[in-house]
Design a protein around this nucleic acid. Structure first.
Lengths: 222, 222
DNA sequence: ACCTGAACACCGTTCAAGT
DNA sequence: ACCTGAACACCGTTCAAGT
């Protein structure tokens, strides 16, 4: 009487699909961090056993890669079609990419492990290539340049983003002390001092993107 | 009769020291990969219990960071004092840094997690700053530039290096198929085609370093 | 083909108790 | 201060058996 007629009373256990599994995984990640997105925890959430998930994902890395590509769907590619300097619009796309990863450090790290190749990642590659083309960057340089631009965004996110469940980033004053202590034996570090660490991650990354765009545009290949 | 007089028969259990623990950890890493460098496995190697190691390292990440800095001692900084174009010598130092990380992908990944700050890392930073100074790169640009140069080396190693115990890198032909499949909807990817993936990681990284050096030298901050 | 329970072989970290 | 055994709370992955 309770079970067959009224699926709302106890939500019917939904059939497993890759999409559904990834959705559940994203849910866990947003609530508790990627560290908790384990085969066992996910199976529990889906009311099944861990072994069932291996029908859809070969291993935990593959699962994380699928979560990553799902998240990359949030990247804002509108600047490609917008008005304005191509450099600025390229930086907007790259910043959006980085921002998505910034929210989940461990996700950025997984992007380093299994080079992303999902559909959303390809959209981003296409967008970057379109903007480099608009800027008249020689094709050979654009071909190798995309990779560098995205890799630097990924690496920055992996370094600076912190998941909720992780140890907090080391205190700034700790670094200042390290630099101060290093000064006697390291004259160049001493001379530059705290400017080594100045600026927000965002400011530094903006400059880094500009550096790369200039370098890619003006450095011939071999 | 056997134990007290002749330590060679059964090597005396050495007292624990940070240095000794790291040495044992490096040994395990070289034999079986960083994945096996766990508190439990290491304790077993040192003939003690896992809890003992927490006197020296706050957690597994801290242990891996110590292993990383030990490895960074192998980076060849001689080009700093050598003759020749400063750019070429800078690339030599950066290549040496990357090569050390290439041997152990998971180590490179750990460098992304806990920004390295050990003594050997500082030596490398100092070396890079010395060469940028020699090249007349403005100090503000050098200050932020070091970080980018090393981060790109780290990221490249994290992406391309494979540990023995890991899944092998995805087949090149797989990527070619992905690109081919993407062509209809992604004109720029289609136009560039396999040049997106051409070259060895080393060739690409050499060019990337050149791109960065040029960009850093010629892109003013703010 | 898809799903499952149960098992194997591991983990990190803490804590109370010892020296 | 340093070291330890034991415990708690987890993991990934495989496999034989079921539907």
């Amino acid at each position: 009487m309770t079970t067959s007629r009224s699926p709302r009373e106890r939500p019917a256990k939904p059939a497993l699909t890759s999409e559904g599994i990834v959705s559940a995984a994203v849910g866990i990640m947003q609530a508790e961090g990627l560290k908790k997105v384990t085969m066992r925890r996910l199976a529990q959430e889906l009311d099944t056993g861990p072994a069932s998930l291996y029908v859809y994902f070969a291993n935990t890395d593959a699962l994380h890669a699928a979560v990553l590509d799902r998240m990359l769907g949030k990247v804002d590619l509108a600047p490609v079609e917008a008005q304005g300097d191509w450099r600025d619009r390229l930086i907007q796309v790259l910043s959006s990419y980085t921002t998505v990863l910034f929210g989940h450090a461990s996700l950025a790290r997984s992007a380093l492990v299994s080079r992303p190749g999902g559909p959303h990642y390809l959209e981003i590659v296409e967008a970057v290539l379109a903007l480099l083309h608009e800027g008249g960057v020689p094709q050979a340089q654009a071909a190798w340049g995309v990779d560098i631009l995205l890799a630097l965004g990924t690496a920055t996110a992996a370094e600076h983003a912190r998941d909720d469940d992780e140890a907090p980033e080391v205190d700034w004053s700790t670094y200042v002390q390290v630099i101060h202590a290093a000064s006697p034996n390291h004259p160049y570090i001493g001379a530059i001092g705290t400017d080594l660490l100045s600026g927000t991650p965002e400011e530094r990354l903006q400059w880094a993107f500009r550096v790369l765009i200039n370098g890619i545009a003006f450095t011939p290949r071999s």
